[in-house]
Design a protein around this nucleic acid. Structure first.
Lengths: 152, 152
DNA sequence: ATCATATAGTTAGTTATGCAACTAATATCA
DNA sequence: TGATATTAGTTGCATAACTAACTATATGAT
């Protein structure tokens, strides 16, 4: 009965901390060992800018699943390191377009190689169809909690 | 080619942020709506103590996948709220045994109900065998990164 | 018994996150 | 046009995370 109580909670702990924390820590360690002085959070912002440069902070919030203050401060820190710069939108002065610097462009290949290598280490013994299922489950969990009738 | 580069990275972003953050935020919100003034991180410590009271801080580090300073401060904050107390081990004075107070025992059922309810919301449309597969994949990812030949 | 080592926990400094309250610019509409 | 609402971004405050350096206690080898 108490076990029954705890059953879903254990899944919660799995989802919340275990694997994602381990992956994040390993990737951070691999960055550091390569002499790269960026956090994985900063990297995740750069990652979306490498896919599409000049995104607004609002768009970065959506793509990185972060709130506005988090993005503000990540951009602050990336700007201190001269990896991005804020450029006011010509059509709407409320909007900051975030643009990569040359220094950030140089980081792209090395860090993405490190990330792929880290994921390869993490996913030893995991089949492709299992990866797809995890992605699918997570998409449904995210949708359940962020849209539709269940939104509070 | 650039897509190929980014393929694993996208899984990384799924594992790292999306679903787990959404679940954590929802659970935190449900706690707050119920008038409960604890963080999900504090709750995760209580959760392990409800399963087994009087664990050492070191043991809590292992079970919650946190490092020692994190546990020190979580216990500090739980102690401020009179939810746990540190008791020196009678056999080894280096060790603090962390013990639940009556106030914490009272929180058990309501918070676990809220957690189960939150997980139920999150897992709408997710089959039991999919949950088991996610748990299995995450266990393998965790093991890959924390033991064996891949340990750095 | 003593000295070196290992273990449990704490402290300090930096970064990140969530929430609430705020400013500035734009959009809506009476 | 002018009042109101909405949107983009920032700031302040609290909690939490990681690293590195630290204290105190215990263990082990000689």
């Amino acid at each position: 009965m108490i076990n029954n109580h705890f059953r879903r909670g254990e899944l919660y702990s799995v989802i919340n901390g275990m694997a994602s924390t381990a992956v994040a820590r390993r990737l951070q360690k691999n960055f550091r060992n390569a002499g790269l002085d960026i956090t994985i959070e900063q990297w995740s912002v750069l990652y979306h800018l490498w896919k599409e440069d000049g995104l607004s902070q609002q768009e970065l919030c959506i793509r990185t699943f972060r709130d506005k203050p988090s993005i503000t401060r990540l951009i602050d820190n990336l700007e201190k390191q001269s990896l991005v710069k804020r450029v006011a939108s010509p059509t709407d002065r409320r909007i900051n377009l975030v643009q990569l610097t040359d220094a950030a462009l140089e980081l792209q290949h090395i860090t993405i190689d490190l990330a792929n290598q880290t994921m390869a280490e993490a996913l030893v013994g995991v089949e492709k169809h299992e990866i797809e299922m995890v992605k699918s489950v997570f998409q449904r969990v995210y949708d359940n909690l962020t849209m539709g009738i269940l939104e509070v």
